[in-house]
Design a binder for these strands. Sequence first.
DNA 1: TGTTGGCACTCTCTCTTTACGAGTGCTAAA
DNA 2: TTTAGCACTCGTAAAGAGAGAGTGCCAACA
Lengths: 359, 359
Amino acid sequence: MEISARKKRILAAVVENYIRSAEPVGSKTIAETAGLGCSSATIRNELSELTALGYLEQPHTSAGRVPSPQGYRFYVNELMERQKLSLEEAEAINARLNEKMEQLDRLMADAGKLAGQLTGYPALALSAPRAATVKRFDLLYVDANTFIIVALLSNSTVQNKLVHLPFSVDQGMIQKLSALFNAGFTGLTDEEITPVLISATERAARDTMGLTSIIAAFTIEALSRSREGEAYVTGESSLLQQPEFRDPDKAHRVISYLSDSGHLMSLPSAGSDSGVRVIIGPENLAEELRDSSVVMASYDAGEGQRGLIGVVGPLRMDYAAVAAKLQYIAEGLSRLLGSGEAPAGFGKMILKGDVTSDE
Amino acid sequence: MEISARKKRILAAVVENYIRSAEPVGSKTIAETAGLGCSSATIRNELSELTALGYLEQPHTSAGRVPSPQGYRFYVNELMERQKLSLEEAEAINARLNEKMEQLDRLMADAGKLAGQLTGYPALALSAPRAATVKRFDLLYVDANTFIIVALLSNSTVQNKLVHLPFSVDQGMIQKLSALFNAGFTGLTDEEITPVLISATERAARDTMGLTSIIAAFTIEALSRSREGEAYVTGESSLLQQPEFRDPDKAHRVISYLSDSGHLMSLPSAGSDSGVRVIIGPENLAEELRDSSVVMASYDAGEGQRGLIGVVGPLRMDYAAVAAKLQYIAEGLSRLLGSGEAPAGFGKMILKGDVTSDE
DNA sequence: TGTTGGCACTCTCTCTTTACGAGTGCTAAA
DNA sequence: TTTAGCACTCGTAAAGAGAGAGTGCCAACA
């Protein structure tokens, strides 16, 4: 069934009013604010039909209307105007992004924080999980009982570990091990580093002191950590300021769900086609998020990696503003970090609309 | 004024009952449960005096008594029995600690998580801030445009950074820089690395194409990060389950205060290391924590470092149980990480690592 | 056919009143 | 010094009344 232009305007008015006021919207309000040149009675008829179509809901017989999840979805897909950031906002974001450039290893989490502060919702930052391999090992001899393992991974991160030993090793042993690992363990994912391989290497090295397994264990851990991706959540408590989360139990359910990073990693799996993704209430796979909406934007983190920033809030979220802000931040991050290469291995993720990626 | 033994027993009964029930404790309840062989009227007289002395409070004329902060303090200092963990609890903690040994760099945060899960309160984990210096630099040549900076710090962490250059360097240059930094920058705190020193080094190296300042900037950042210490907070939302934090605004104030790690670093300054510390409500310096209590235990993190784990909860916290658990965890951590007294006879290796990843 | 004003109806929210109960403080007796 | 008894206080839960907002429907109108 096709929806008339006026119905669309009325639906948009309901959504936008409700987003602002958090209270059911009545026909009178719409007649006054939407500027449709018709009376509240007419609006009532339209509202009634929109309700029958499933776009609106009535909390009780004699209250105003509230958008249903389907109503929000329609709004997001077809009615929502692409919001432009104000100059101040854009500049504030740029300033924050530039100032963070110094601390690249924390950038991911900081990007989440920025998103949270700008939108006032709890924010999440995810790095796409991705199988990595070691490109190169270095073992640094420190003293007779100490050495450092340094591993350069295929995703261009460097992991290291300081190892203290209860016995002595000499430089020769360290060099031998280094050569051995560079020869035998580079290019392998964590799953390919099997106990069989380790013990074979151990025999080849004539290593009786267990050094091989120490290094192998470190390698496996470093790789699997990178494969699992990382997740940061910040500003969880700002959820408490939303009227729909004044119930501490409800808030607790959502927040504690968010706090378990394991859960979060499954969020983006639901599909990732365009720049900004909106998941509305019951569309969430996770039971705990059925009363919440999630808005996410992905960015190019360089080295063929993609990152994700997003916020979580009530259904009554200001989708237009949040989407605009997230997209702007994501674009900024892509510009700063991005390699310009096509994203590999993380599905096709093309930023929607006018991407100004001059790289 | 000296407090009679019976008053002490009554006070303890009030505190313990209130901790359990979260509701004001009446004279009748005490007469029935405390086993003092006297009637509720007698208890009433005593309660009245305890109230006059400031150990108890009355929410309103005709409710039971609630411990005042001073009452909690007296309870913690003199009445609280040192609780012993059950065998299951102790074993659960030990198991968790051992399983974490593999991932030492995350151990600090994990220890906090453990404390939180065991006690049901939000938990924090702090590393004591401490000025560090670089003990040793290594620059690893990767390819003509890429090298890795590895710095071993005096606090036995290792920091690294992968550097991509828009121009080529050769191995000789890398080696020269490495020698230069090992000669000129080891043993300095971040504050001692002045722009004057950097530019002097740059001149001395002749034609380093800005590499000197890149490495110097990395060094400063690594050192200042270590000097600021680190703070992790987990399980904030469990505060919402406490009856005294059902008010979302109150909970939000506390949680958002906790979420700012800058605030947390000032927490331990008020006191020193020995054993378990309890800070009760108004004793907190921070306004935001005046309605909360903090229990902290410090542990020996090895290398002369101390770490801190703690929990935050309502005044009505089960101090005895929480203190016992924290102490047990802290002792376990000290045993695992502690440098000085660790019995090396078991051939147990002490692995300590720090992982940073830069792009 | 679509739009409008009018009107009765419904339902929630808030305020007030009432009743209840838990616990105290006091007094007098043991 | 302890105890039993009793009046009193105060918060809370339940019940009732009134107001207000918004709907749904109907008849009239362009």
